[in-house]
Amino acid sequence: MKIVRMEDVIKRFGDVIALDNVNLEIEEGEIYGLLGPNGAGKTTAISIICGLLNFDRGEVYVFDKNIRKEPEFIKKNIGIVPQDVAIYGDLTAYENVAFFASLYGLKGKELKESVEMSLEFVGLSDKAKEVPNKFSGGMKRRLNIACAIAHRPKLVIMDEPTVGIDPQSRNHILESTKRLNEMGSTIIYTSHYMEEVEAICTRISIMDHGKVIAEGTKEELTSMVTDVNTVYIEIGSIDGIKEEELKGIKGVKAVEIRDSTIKITSLKDVGNFDDIIHYFISKNIPIRNLRNEIPDLETVFLTLTGRKLRD
């Protein structure tokens, strides 16, 4: 089942086009990454999916229901983790989660159990009676997540949930996201940290200037921008190495020898890794280090847009 379907969606803010004919399809059970620099249109897209923003043209279906016709049903089944921490600093962690969960109809014992479960999920059970004003940035971010999941939504939207926090809290949030997904929630995860998206997302859309410029799995995206694979081999001495012999290996396109490191560029589709290793073993040349350079999403973004993600 398609959890989200955006069809040719256009959203304007005055003269600025925030979303320009955006098409997205998100399957149930995915961790779907929306990657792009600030101002790319990620937050606008998810605000539309949540029913928080009107749009000028196109159609949006969430849980196979038209967002213009059945916003209440859709809202009831979505949990949103906003980019900015959206919690009451003067209410306790428990009160915060309880209030937001009760807006989704939870009450009584069910509410109590859900709140406790959510706080435990984000590792804040022992802080339930404390007010977030005294929390660290990471703890506030975790409470921000707890407030979004207590009503057990089918779709959890996380908008830059790790901005400005320590690595420990970041890892906790990434792990929590994966666990949430394992527990049955579909996740939309927006970030401009490509390493986060690479680490947890099953499929990724890259957005820029309000457009989806590429979409697919990480492998599909990287293969879009390069058809070669580069291996760096570090050896003790280059004596006995003949560049021509290396170039003779099937699929090798280029060889570059610098000091004790040899850079071999091969066609990606040709599996010649064994042949390259065998060449060094046959010449009794010990390999000190070996590194395979795979293009990352940063490279993909750079290639597609001509600028870095965090420019």
């Binding site: 809202k75 009831k76 906003p82 900015d84 959206a86 919690i87 009451y88 937001f100 109809g105 979004a148």
Partner: peptide
């Protein structure tokens, strides 16, 4: 300002 408004209106309220 505190963005709780955003969260409230993301709910069915």
């Amino acid at each position: 300002r505190d963005k709780t408004f955003y969260r409230i209106f993301a709910s069915p309220l």
